[in-house]
Amino acid sequence: MGFKEKVLSKSIYAFHLSSGSCNNCDIEFLDTLTPRYDLERFGIIMVGSVKHADVLICTGSTNRLCVPRIKKLYEMMPKPGFVVAWGACGSSRGVFKDSYNTGAPLDEIVPVDVYIPGCPPKPEAIIAGMKKLVDKITVKK
């Protein structure tokens, strides 16, 4: 584990990217930041700009309009950067798979590191998922 990863695993800054979601995943994400679940105890906070972020949290079914933006935001994120596919929509486009306005699945647009399934994932699942991300960062060579 390099120095960067060691520091990163203790303070993950997350940028929230919603691309055609039903809002529930976004609500549950905000919910885990508030006192009851409090993701901040793992050093995870939400930041306002992708240029400060280490992790891109992608919710929603990757709307066609959003696909180029997702690519762009991923490029703008400082490296090493990680991507979390959030919810059934982020992982596989969920119930909106057949819609005319849904683009490619997220993992064909950007490399995805962690999938958190669920529609929406429960806060406990979210915490477990973020823990997996931390593990992934720390064992990465």
Binding site: S21, N63, C66, V95, Y100
Partner: peptide, 21 residues
Amino acid sequence: GWNHRGIEKLSEAKTFDQSIF
């Protein structure tokens, strides 16, 4: 248009029970 998912059209391709979901 950033969040448009074409729900009305999707619903028309599903059965009544699925529409509710």
